[in-house]
């Protein structure tokens, strides 16, 4: 009887010590999976996923608080990539978070109406609007992600959404006949 207890207890203690030591030796810093998810997200920083930016959304996915189908700018492509990365089933985009746009868009400021209030500059998550107080504001279209966060703050409604026409070199072959999108 005694030997049984001793042996089992002894084994348990040895393993406990071993595992404790291993825990320290194999400590993991940071969270690389969040980086991998963030690398897939489109970086529009629009907040449609209900998180304040793409990185917080990535962190929420890892924590299990968010699902993979909450990103409208990423659309199906991003959902598929996330599903592949995390080895889960892909699912359709959650309609509560918004719709995927038919075509990529950017915004443009009408200089005639702009009053130089800088509210849009403060709203832009990627600093794509150039300007200062009482100075002309303009959008750097190459850097604009199409998040549309600058539209609500503008007091004079001088910002318009325009579709982004793909260049000839960026033209894509269409799907072969009989294939659904």
């Amino acid at each position: 009887m005694l030997e049984a207890i001793l042996i089992l207890a002894g084994l348990a203690i040895i393993f406990g010590l071993l595992l404790g030591f291993a825990e320290i030796r194999f400590k993991v810093e940071g969270d690389p999976v969040v980086d991998r998810i963030d690398a897939i997200l489109p970086q529009t920083q629009c907040g449609q996923c209900t998180y304040p930016g793409c990185r917080p959304y990535a962190e929420a996915i890892v924590k299990g608080e968010a699902d993979i189908n909450q990103c409208p700018p990423g659309g199906e492509v991003v959902i598929q990539h996330l599903a592949d990365l995390l080895d889960v089933e892909p699912k359709p985009l959650n309609a509560d978070n918004g719709e995927e746009k038919e075509q990529k868009t950017v915004v443009i400021i009408d200089e005639q109406i702009c009053i130089g209030c800088t509210l849009c500059i403060q709203a832009c998550p990627v600093d794509a609007i150039l300007g200062a107080a009482k100075q002309m504001h303009t959008v750097i279209s190459d850097e604009c992600t199409g998040c549309d966060l600058c539209i609500p703050p503008c007091p004079v409604d001088c910002i318009y959404i325009v579709p982004l026409e793909p260049e000839l070199t960026a033209w894509k072959w269409p799907l072969p006949a009989g294939e659904q999108a």
Binding site: D38, L41, P42, Q43, T44, Q45, G53, C54, P125, V126, D127, A128, E143, T145, A170
Partner: peptide, 17 residues
């Protein structure tokens, strides 16, 4: 590939902001 380059730039700009 083009989108990825663009989004990397957007991420850098956002982080810098």
């Amino acid at each position: 590939e083009r989108d990825r380059i663009k989004s990397d730039r957007a991420r850098d700009r956002h982080d810098f902001r």
